[in-house]
Each structure stands twice: as C-alpha cells, then as structure tokens.
C-alpha cells in the first residue's frame, strides 16, 4: 500500500468496495459453509481414520498404524476387482444409455400421433425408484424360471439362462441402462429442439442426405448436451449402490461388486473402519485424477480454471 494512493477518498472508496464485495459474497456463504461442513469435514475425519487400525468388533483396538492400511488396499485383489467393475459399469452404462438415448430422441423429434404419450412412457424408467427397478429386473425379468426375458428368449435357445448369477455384470448394466436411457434421451431431445429449423431446412435445400445432415450438422450441435449427459451420468452411475445391493449383493462372490458396494461391505459387515476409510481415500484420490483428466478433455472449451479439487 503506497503512500501516494493512501489518501482519504481513496481509502473510503476501497472501504465501500470491500463492503460491496462482501454484500455480493454474503448470499453465497450459507451454502458454501453448509457444503464444506457436511461434505469436506467428514472426509478429513475419514483421512484420520484411514491411518488407524480400528475394528469395531474389537473395542479399544484403535491404534495409529500410519500407511499400513493403504498398503493393504493396493494388495487387495478384491479391491482392484471392484475398481475394475466400477469402470466397466460406468462406461458401459453411460455409453449404451447415451447411444439409445440419441436414437430415441431422434425418433421423438418429429410430430406424430401420440407423441406426448410416447415421451411420457419413455421417461418413466428414470422416475421409478432404482431399488424397485433392481428388484423388478432381478425377479420378473431375469428369473430363470418365471422371468419374462427367459420366456422371450426361449425360441433362441436362451430360455433357461440364469442371467443374474451367470452374467451378473450384464444383468446389472441392463438395469442401469434402462434407468439412465431416459435421462440421456431428455437431454438430447432438449438439444435437438434447440436446433434452429432454418439450419436443417438449408441443409435439405442443399440436398444433404439424412446421415450427412446428422453427422455434419446435428451431432456437432448436440455435442454440448451429450457432454453434459456423459458428465452427469458418470457422476451418478459411479456411485451406484442400490442396484447392486438389491440385484446381486456384489455376487457371486465379489464378481459384481463395485467400489461403493465393496467398501460398504468392509465397513458395515466387516466393521473394519480403518481399512475401509483408506479405501475411501484411495477412491477419492482416484476419482479426482480421473475427473480432472475427464473435465480437461470434455470441458476444454468450458470456463473451468484448473484448480485442484478439494
């Protein structure tokens, strides 16, 4: 602060500016403080727990063990399997749901008899409670004896496949795709409907074929909506817990356990607090790395400054 600028009016201006700055910032604070308290503080505690050996089944077993829990995490084959499953579930679900969503949105993006009803029907799977969705697929759809899937596939010789126990990953991904396709469809439909008619008509005048128009005009226009769908979808699907809990319980064995479910098992069934806390920290760090890379790729055009994630 140099003496030259430190005159009386200048100081007053600075003071009002500061006051204005706070007036602008104040409405933000309650939300910010609340979020930090509820999401960041517990995570700090998790880091603390991760340095302890602490099993709830053995009272007074809490001791400081340094990084031993982390060492155990990285040599835990089941943990690595769950990590792999998480990647498979998320990428398969998001990609297939997005492809189907684009297809359905294209079909809906024209006027036809009962369009509103068709759209209403199509968004329904997104609204049904995921727990109910999982039970629905596990029983009435995938049951090897009484399920509808088996009945439909009987002519193809796949009538008595026990999907949930033989192909648990396929079964879980199917339920997830069913649930998330409407979400993608709605986003893409919103994108399609924000597209100017004149552009499309100009393309038609130019004699562009349907496929050419889709690839050359529509798809670039949809890019932002597709990116938003992939980002939001990934955020939610990575954390999927209910579908696995209800359909497979991570089984058989840990064949279909993803990270949330595996850590849940270690915490609430194994009561191994230190170990599961270390897993949580590893997952968070991994997520930060993946998310930062993904955001940098996806949102290169967006406004994000690359600051670290807290």
């Amino acid at each position: 602060m140099s003496a030259a600028t430190d005159t009386e009016p200048a100081r007053r201006t600075r003071a009002t500016q500061r006051a204005q700055g706070w007036a602008l910032r104040a409405p933000l604070l309650p939300a910010l403080i609340f979020t930090i308290l509820v999401t960041q503080l517990p995570f700090l505690v998790t880091i603390f727990y991760s340095l302890q050996s602490w099993n709830l089944l053995r009272p007074d077993s809490q001791t400081f063990v340094g990084l031993a829990n982390y060492l155990a995490v990285f040599t835990d084959a089941q943990f690595l399997g769950a990590a792999l499953n998480t990647i498979v579930f998320t990428s398969a679900c998001v990609l297939v749901a997005m492809a189907l969503g684009i297809g359905l949105a294209l079909l809906l993006d024209r006027k036809f008899l009962g369009r509103g009803v068709a759209r209403t029907l199509l968004i329904t799977p997104f609204l049904i409670i995921p727990v109910a969705t999982a039970l629905l697929w596990k029983t009435t759809m995938f049951d090897p004896v009484f399920g509808l899937i088996g009945f439909v596939l009987t002519p193809f010789g796949l009538g008595d496949v026990d999907w949930v126990s033989q192909y648990p990953i396929v079964a879980v991904v199917t339920a997830l795709v069913w649930q998330w396709t409407p979400f993608m469809m709605l986003l893409v439909l919103a994108g399609l409907q924000s597209q100017g008619r004149d552009v499309i008509e100009a393309g038609q005048v130019d004699g562009a074929g349907r496929w050419q128009m889709f690839v050359g005009i529509t798809l670039p226009h949809l890019r932002r909506y597709i990116e938003l769908g992939v980002l939001l979808g990934s955020i939610y699907v990575v954390n999927t817990f209910d579908t696995i809990y209800m359909m497979t319980q991570g089984g058989p064995g840990t064949a279909s356990a993803n990270l949330p479910f595996y850590i849940y098992q270690r915490t609430f069934l194994g009561f191994d607090i230190g170990q599961s806390a270390a897993m949580g920290v590893v997952v968070v760090v991994g997520t930060i790395i993946v998310a930062t890379l993904a955001l940098r790729l996806i949102f290169r055009s967006f406004m994000f400054a690359q600051e670290g994630i807290s």
Binding site: L32, T35, T39, Q40, L41, P42, F43, V45, T46, Y49, I235, V238, N239, F241, L259, P260, I263, Y264, T267, I273, S276, A277, G280, V281, V283, V284, T287, I288, A291, F304, A305, E307, I309, S310
Partner: peptide
C-alpha cells in the same frame, strides 16, 4: 467447480464419519 467436485466424491468415503 468446488460445488460440482463435491458430487464426485464417493459417498462411501464419508459414511463412517
């Protein structure tokens, strides 16, 4: 960015605390 990043933290990591 901070707000959206809190959505990326897996909830299992904070459930014990």
């Amino acid at each position: 960015f901070f707000f959206i990043s809190t959505k990326m933290l897996p909830v299992v990591a904070v459930v014990v605390p």
